[in-house]
Write a protein that binds this DNA or RNA. Structure first.
Lengths: 334, 334
DNA sequence: ATGAAAGCGCTAACAA
DNA sequence: TTGTTAGCGCTTTCAT
């Protein structure tokens, strides 16, 4: 193992070829005679040569790095997303840079600017940016938005319109007549989109639907959300995500309200904890890792491809029925 | 907003100065006259100039990027660690690259090699590498190991020896006379270290201690772990982490074994779910985010500093008593 | 198929 | 304080 790393020059000299040949052997193997190539690679191995990615990026303008910007790294839901993205990136020899936007559109923008020259593209997960800003951003950067749809931009979302419909239908079939949506952050596209779907489904099925909030998508804000929900008289609460739903259930328990006998509670994401809390949480889940994977894939493709197609991928979701939903007014079965 | 980004040359020309002056204005501001500096920066802003990090890294040999390699990104415990590290890095204008080693020492090593030239240093979290390999690695790379101690290497660990002692003492005070440690992966330093501490404390306090395993630190392997624990006749099981503990409790419930009346269960990490499962889990927690933060800080310091000090930081832990531990043979109180 | 040579955008001596 | 200039390690024409 060398102290100081060798360069293309060292390899070229040791192999008795030109530097360009060494370069080709690594980045354009079929432009080099088979024997020369093997020889060069062998020498390179012996010398412990590793291409310098910065030198490479400087001239080729490709960094083999992608950045994933998440709205809030604190939310366990992003875990799977990040995991899927990391694995897919690694599989193609790409590196994943992780950025936490801390729920701030400003930080989000700042970081994108900061990283512009260092990465080949961006995955913007649950971006809090206005659509126009995103479009402008995408004019200068390679971008895939995740869990958000912006016409004209490549995107991957976990299906949720149909999911919301099923959710409401599930509640309706249990006998609920009034539901309340405990909304997520004002700037969350998901929150708006879900509310539209819930309201639509409720109208169709003859339920009353109200919206309260916005609430931060955290356990802590579940207290306020629960109290708000109770004032509406609704027998079912659909929380913006599982964290909020768990917080709501906590507060309801504290206030002596039974779930699901008095109030049914539903969440989104199917985080790990959804299957552990008491009662276990009915929620809209799906393969979040696939979302991350697909997003990276689209980004990588967009770098090779003709360009300018903006695929909008929808990964299927599934409504997972657990113990937090039930017939209103009836104590939980068994 | 320019289509193509401007360089130091554009700025230099537009500002009527030499390129080196522009360079200094950005990377060494106090080596430039105040008025020139302001002028240059103003022009740069107008031109939308952004320093190219690769060009910069190529000559300066600093990338302002650090990599965090985690043994298994699937484990929610790493979440906090990653979060702390990301925030600390960002605060210093550094970028955090995330790498999942998938529990494989080989992948761990491969990735470190792959990233050598792209990052200024590595955070190796719960490394599965043998100590010798780590030392060798550290000879050629700037490394901080996290949640592992290797003499001679900078490290940050969440305190757990004293934590294990308190854990055993807690169990002893409840009347337990025999405990079993459900060990984590064979290559986990933590697993070895915890067993040593548990065994020591048990001996001191006159308890019988056994070890079973190794088990993968996942919910899924909790089944086998629970069955193994039952064969020992111990009244208390200390699982390698919360995931395993939760899996154990599930299996015990399935087998009709009461927790904590029949068997007490303890975990490590205090993941979010530990406070949600039934019964809630007694566990050794602590500020994992601080661990991540500190690790980055040590890494960054080691880049400026005289060098060759290898601080070993210990972040305090706390034993969090919940409902999964109790007096053996007695149904849970209230 | 291979080599020579010109940069990519920046920093860091060294001069002035 | 500022300018000149030689690279950093690599890719990529353009020749051969």
């Amino acid at each position: 193992m060398q102290m100081t790393s060798s360069t293309i020059y060292d390899v070229a000299k040791a192999a008795g070829v030109a530097t360009s040949t060494v370069s080709r052997a690594f980045s354009n193997p079929d432009r080099v005679g088979a024997v020369t190539r093997e020889h060069v690679l062998e020498v390179a191995r012996r010398l412990g040569y590793q291409p310098n990615p910065h030198a490479r990026a400087l001239v080729s303008r490709r960094t083999r790095t992608v950045a994933m910007v998440v709205s809030d790294i604190t939310n366990p839901h992003f875990f799977e997303l990040i995991r899927g993205a990391e694995m897919r990136a690694k599989a193609s020899g790409y590196t994943l840079v992780l950025v936490n936007a801390e729920e701030s559109p400003r930080i989000e923008l700042e970081q994108v600017h900061r990283l512009t020259r260092s990465v080949d593209g961006f995955l913007l997960a649950a971006s809090r940016q206005p659509a126009d800003d995103l479009l402008q951003l995408a004019a200068n950067h390679r971008v895939v938005v995740v869990n958000r749809r912006v016409p004209g931009l490549a995107s991957v979302v976990l299906e949720h319109a149909e999911g919301c419909r099923q959710m409401v239908a599930h509640l309706a079939s249990l006998g609920h007549e009034s539901v309340v949506y405990l909304a997520g952050p004002r700037s969350s596209w998901m929150a708006a989109s879900r509310w539209a779907a819930i309201r639509g489904a409720a109208a169709e099925l003859g339920l009353r639907a109200q919206r309260m909030g916005p609430f931060a998508p955290t356990v802590a804000s579940g207290g306020a959300a629960a109290d708000a929900a109770l004032t509406t008289g609704a027998t079912a609460a659909i929380a913006h995500n599982d964290l909020l739903a768990i917080g709501v259930m906590r507060r309801l328990a504290d206030r002596g309200v039974q779930v699901p006998a008095d109030v049914s509670v539903v969440g989104f994401d199917d985080i790990f904890a959804a299957d552990l809390c008491t009662p276990t949480l009915t929620t809209l889940g799906g393969a979040h890792a696939d979302v991350g994977r697909a997003a990276v894939e689209i980004l990588l493709n967009s770098m090779e491809q003709p360009r300018d197609l903006a695929p909008e991928l929808v990964v299927p979701s599934e409504l997972i029925l657990r113990r937090s939903t039930g017939v209103p007014g009836r104590p939980a079965g068994r």
